[in-house]
Design a binder for these strands. Structure first.
Lengths: 194, 194, 194, 194
DNA sequence: CATGAATGAGAGTTCATTCAT
DNA sequence: AATGAATGAACTCTCATTCAT
């Protein structure tokens, strides 16, 4: 059948509501209304409000990781891999606009539990970059700091993009950020991949 | 001493509680307990929970701006001004550890009102950087993106530093971030100012 | 039976509690306890405590107006219409003992909003009497004052009746009040309608 | 000295505040501000908020009774005594506008305790009228009901007068009410006293 | 599976009252 | 006598969660 229906419907509704109201302002009632179901139905698919929010965080994480893996497959050159990875991540944010808003903007101070999870995601993402940078010849200490900086820079850009209702070319901005870090590390094959 | 100021006591307590629990998990009762006063006393000094939180946000903002102004006074060289501004900001975060945590980490998704306020602060900070960069000869479009990226990178570094309980040299990291952006824009007087 | 209607149950409980304690001494918990439900349930049916109280005021108002309309239907003689109207009103108070107590006795100084509403009701009732009196040939200025006086006299009688736990023949008293005003205005068909 | 100062000042302030906001909306703080003293000072003169309110009720009661006594002194004719008593009472209300508002309008549903006191006052006033009426030859049962009706009618008129900000000739209205009851009881010396 | 009425713990907030100064 | 900062009990209202249907 067209199963996968109900839970995904509710997740979609939750995403919309959370992105609009934030975690605490959003109520189960709102989500249920948006999903056109009863509040009780929500609890058939999710243990709690938290559980549902975390599911969204996981979804974004999974999407990002999937796309990154896809973008890297078959590429040997480490700087090219890194470049494509970042492009893939930004692409996911651009396509999953609402989801990115929920996780990157609304999730931050919502709850210590989410923060924990979100930081693990960022950390994971950073370590990814770190290993690529090391392969590119950047010494580990600088690579670690640079990776965090890069993640932060990207998140800020995405945040600005979301807040300004996309009145900013996310791709262009992401490329400028990339150029900055690229130049700083003397990775000279920058223009070959554009 | 004499006063010490009841309001400051409560602000200090609020800072501690908010930094530990986040805005929504924190309760007025917790704050009052921490400040060793009754809940009613809290309301002698603050109109509401929100009001108190915003007061903390403003405090950090004021501290940062004060220190930046101080660091810039008498400096002519634009890249030197920029460098000192950022160092001053990072210094405030390092000294006001808890406060930075409340505002930068917990405040984000807590409430639409706070988000609004925090983004305005970040925006203000960015525009600061933008004007210095332009003075340094960076074209405006790149300056804008770069400034946002820089703010994001710094915030992330501070976030990591806070989360890891300061197990990271914040100064060193901030300098590495600075080096990255500096190099990317070809600002060659970097070492002359150290 | 089936329902009985949760809302009606709560209204009944509120009526009992309000009549006993007055608006401000009554708490939502008292009402919920009386209605044998949780406090949250109260808020499924009423927006606020005020809303619930006003609902009771409206109920009495509606009952009175309904019965008055019924009593007047098909009657031509203006003094007869007036007489029957007043009897109908008194009848409602006698039957809806508690409700009358809530609205007429407890509602007065409880809240500016209620006062406003209650005075509008009394005003409406007065204007009713005024128009009948004018039809009976009483000049408008006297009719207006007389109508207010009549309403006040009746309210006082009902108040006394309620306070003395009905140890007073309300009907008899109302008729004596009527006789007084009737005589004063020389309406001589008094006995023809008894 | 000009003692009698402080307590009377606070009573005056309380009267103003209670008349404007009603018993429950009024706060000790408001009264203290109006009296230009500290909240603690309030409690030097009154045991509680209730105590202060009751003092106002007593004040009005005393004023009314004093004036009535004065108006009756030396008068023999019972209907004349009654007439002058009522005129004296209405006069007090007219002069002590605010106080009348506090007691007659705001005090009603404020608190079971006040209601109790207020009803005793009204009862006392009624019994006054009753005894005069009996002297005038009105049979006791009718006199009792009539007296209550009269009190109610007067209170309503005063209420309307207060609510409409005195846009109504209170004296005239009171006289019309008097005429009504007078005529109803066949007291024919009405015009001799005007 | 689905419902949505019912729950009740717990939040923010107010304000009459006290008491050290 | 006068102060006003401090108190804390008690209130109204919210909303995540449950469960009988």
């Amino acid at each position: 059948m067209d199963e996968g229906g109900r839970k995904e419907e509710i997740l979609k509704a939750a995403q919309t509501i959370f992105s609009q109201y934030g975690y605490h302002q959003a109520t189960i009632r709102m989500i249920a209304d948006q999903a056109q179901c009863a509040t009780g139905t929500f609890y058939l698919y999710f243990v709690s409000k938290q559980d549902c929010f975390l599911a969204l965080v996981e979804t974004l994480y999974t999407h990002v990781m999937e796309q990154i893996m896809l973008a890297r497959s078959g590429i040997e050159n480490p700087s090219e891999k890194l470049k494509r990875s970042l492009e893939a991540a930004v692409d996911v944010f651009r396509r999953d606009y609402e989801l990115a808003q929920v996780v990157l903007v609304r999730g931050a101070g919502a709850d210590p539990l989410f923060e924990e999870r979100m930081w693990r995601v960022r950390e994971a993402f950073s370590e990814f970059i770190v290993s690529d940078l090391i392969e590119c010849g950047v010494p580990r200490p600088q690579a670690v700091i640079g990776a965090h900086g890069w993640v932060g820079a990207l998140a800020e850009i995405v945040g600005v993009w979301i807040r300004r209702d996309q009145d900013l070319d996310l791709n262009e901005a992401a490329q400028e950020i990339q150029r900055i870090f690229w130049t700083a590390w003397g990775l000279n094959d920058f223009h070959s991949a554009s």
